[in-house]
């Protein structure tokens, strides 16, 4: 009896009789397309795109970061936030908000995660042209659930993590890590194709872009 695997592979091979046997199966990208599209100063473009998605976004200097984290959490009215184990303590130097730690090794139960007021994380890379922040599960970004279940996500992006366009970002990522690309708060266009921000994922995304020149 042939297995489904043999059947499918057999049919595929039978269907490809026209392909010369010596045609190489491997292929590299031709890359006739641009690495980026010269849309303006990187950080300005990132801020513009995030703003377009209705994310809250601010540019801050490194020495202002702790104060801006505190101010953002206060504006949000957050009492308790989930913080991945690898997030720098310095971010929280000026806030009295309760930090609930989470990590792969010591994960919060789902109900507890559902009970916090937000999540504060870093990111792996950000893409200016598309207004995208990519998380890769490093200890300062945490498990995927931590930035999904709470209704508010505050993300710290350092200027050196920002690239102009998608190709540069893809080349920096490690495929074997769980990757989440985030471009604004959750949204839907399912009703008459009108975009509405805020469905199942965090309804508010706030981004602090940290650069030496603010």
């Amino acid at each position: 009896m042939t297995t489904a695997r043999e059947r499918v592979l057999g049919r595929v091979r039978a269907a490809l009789q026209d392909v010369p046997a010596d045609e190489p199966a491997e292929r590299s990208l031709q890359r006739t397309y641009a690495d980026s599209h010269g849309m303006g100063p990187t950080l300005e473009v990132l801020v513009d795109r995030l703003d377009d998605y209705k994310a809250l976004v601010r540019r801050v200097r490194p020495e202002e970061l702790a104060g801006q984290v505190a101010a953002a959490l206060e504006r949000r009215g957050a009492q308790r936030v989930v913080v991945p184990s690898g997030a720098p303590d310095g971010w929280f130097a000026e806030t009295g908000v309760e930090r609930v730690p989470d990590s792969r090794e010591d994960p919060l139960p789902l109900e507890a995660l559902d009970g916090v007021d937000g999540a504060v994380t870093g990111c792996a890379v950000a893409v200016a042209e598309s207004g995208t922040i990519v998380l890769d599960g490093e200890p300062d970004q945490g498990r995927r659930a931590t930035t999904l279940v709470p209704d508010y996500h505050l993300c710290v992006v350092r200027a050196e993590q920002v690239v102009d366009a998608v190709p540069e970002a893809v080349r920096m990522l490690e495929p074997t890590r769980p990757l989440t690309w985030i471009s604004g708060p959750s949204a839907t266009s399912d009703i008459e194709l009108d975009r509405v921000e805020g469905v199942h994922g965090p309804r508010t995304l706030e981004v602090l872009v940290v650069a030496a020149d603010g």
Binding site: R49, Y53, S103, R104, E105, P107, V127, E129, S130, G131, T132, G137, R143, R144, A145, P175, T176, R177, P178, L179, T180, W181, I182, S183, G184, P185, S186, A187, S189, G201
Partner: peptide, 21 residues
Amino acid sequence: STGERMNPYTSMWTGITPGDG
């Protein structure tokens, strides 16, 4: 597809990640 520069969320996963998902 949606006529956006990027859709709000994209998930990429490779097999199993212990402790996540």
